[in-house]
Design a protein around this nucleic acid. Sequence first.
DNA 1: GTGAAAGCGCTAACAT
DNA 2: ATGTTAGCGCTTTCAC
Lengths: 347, 347
Amino acid sequence: MRAMARGEKRPVTVHTIAQHVGVSPSAVSTVLANRHEERRLAPATVDKIRKAVRDLGYVPNVAARRLRANDPEVHHHDIGILTSFEAPLFLVSRVLRQVQRAADARTGPGRRFSVSIDMFHAGRLREMGGLLNASRFNGVIITNTLPEDDAFLAETTLPYAVVVVGRRLANHCCVLDAPGEIGRRAAEILLGRGARRLAVLVPSLLTQSTAERAEAFVATVLAQTGVAPVRVVAPGLNPVSGAEAMRSHFSTHRGCDGLYAVSDGLSLGAYQAIKDSGRRIPKDVAVVGVGDHEHADFFDPPLTCVGPSNDAIVEQVVTQLFQRMNHRRVNPVEIFVPPSVVMRASA
Amino acid sequence: MRAMARGEKRPVTVHTIAQHVGVSPSAVSTVLANRHEERRLAPATVDKIRKAVRDLGYVPNVAARRLRANDPEVHHHDIGILTSFEAPLFLVSRVLRQVQRAADARTGPGRRFSVSIDMFHAGRLREMGGLLNASRFNGVIITNTLPEDDAFLAETTLPYAVVVVGRRLANHCCVLDAPGEIGRRAAEILLGRGARRLAVLVPSLLTQSTAERAEAFVATVLAQTGVAPVRVVAPGLNPVSGAEAMRSHFSTHRGCDGLYAVSDGLSLGAYQAIKDSGRRIPKDVAVVGVGDHEHADFFDPPLTCVGPSNDAIVEQVVTQLFQRMNHRRVNPVEIFVPPSVVMRASA
DNA sequence: GTGAAAGCGCTAACAT
DNA sequence: ATGTTAGCGCTTTCAC
């Protein structure tokens, strides 16, 4: 009997181990569950089994265990919140809280839920195991996708409840902010303050929705002033990137008197760069952010925000998910949620 | 045959539906997977099955599907990052990133990983399904526990890889910051600046580690000055709570010239209250935070931090988890990670 | 166009 | 002190 460890052709199961040691599968199972005391297995046997488990690199099959362990009288609902690995967890954590709340409300004797956040590498959603054969989730919320992921979703109909957040896909239930509306409102606020030399701070990697925000901003400004705003491109989404980009903007351009930063991480960096350059907010430069940062109200000065109305989005998402898991609704649908506008001191 | 929907005693399975409609389980399965076209099922049959699925409130059993679907040649490792529902996701997301990285590095033809964040209600970890019978995870990282959860863990030995973060439990692998060390260093920094009227800002609900931080701070100040610092208690952990607590502190006490806030959310609120009261940082009040906020460097002025060294903790956690999943290590162990100190302008 | 049967890996009840 | 057996719910050949 070969004792090779990893990379074995045949999978290592309790049966393999049992054979290897010369005992029965149940003995192995007992040891694995630390129940050998109550079963009074011989210590020598236990040791041999333990050794084989290690040597053969045994990995328990949780699907099998679960199938065995579950009380047949209760239905188990597995809900996944799928998000790209590289994206911030802010919206995700709000979604999670709402989903959990809804799940708790529906939990009962014959009905259990488990909610988990699962990450995929941006652009590689299609590689996530169990998505296509429905062997992982009863329902999923998908967010923070990249164009490759959207392409995958557009050509795939998953045979279970799916809600897509922030993207338009004809074959799915989609919940998203009204495209373009956000950028337009941001522009109107800055123009309304009298700002005329406008700039928009964007990350180099744009999602569909950030791109649309920026475009709508540019279009609105152009239409009203005849001059397109400067696009300041930051390498990433974090404050450091924002500060860098704005510093280089100030050193190579005449600067601006109104800035729209398409994420609050960038706004925060922009604040630093603006202040460091001796300019004041909002007197010299008015700033509008998006409201995706939980502390926008604690920026100095507090940040005016025009962005997606996250609460409303999350509410829609959760409602749709549960309706679909209950077979109460099946058809694809696009739900547009109007933006939220919070006026504060920065503009 | 009764057609009652929810709350049925017997679980609804493909078999139930098959019986109800008068077809075979395989027909039902085919419809559920949207494969009725290629199987050329009669449309009428499909409709009847669809209707029964809805009427009976069928919920697919993902464990069974997965058991069936998995290629026997590949080992599937399910890793869970378990965190309390009410806690912020900041550290968790860093852990996730590192775990995912480690998993990706180990993924190969016969070896797949899936990592997910699962939440439990604070204090109710024991109620999380599948934890005890090992039917959900091959390995877990547990964090943000409350005393009730710790009590549960202390009396439970899970038969798979477990790493506990931030708590000491004799029967588990624990990774945590050096207790007391953090509060002591924070005190030393403030005292070293010449501050003498010290205060510590804490949330009303203290975790074991925040409590120890605050205690060590108090003890150090008392030992060196003979006067205990004022404890300012905030209702929660967010900036709003911090600001409130500090405002009421300023209105009822003489104030302080050195503040240690045991979380950066509180620091941020404290900043606002301090500035609003006309005091300057660090001239009138020096502030030390913890460094648990990703933007501490972008506070105005940047926040001096003394806190757990998250990178080092995360690294240890991930190393331990994989060693344990590989059976390379089994015994409980306590790993203390020294604090990180970052001096910035606020103190 | 539809059904019957096998088996994924595991564990608990029931034998020895 | 250890082995045998049945079956959790599902899908996929294969047979009709």
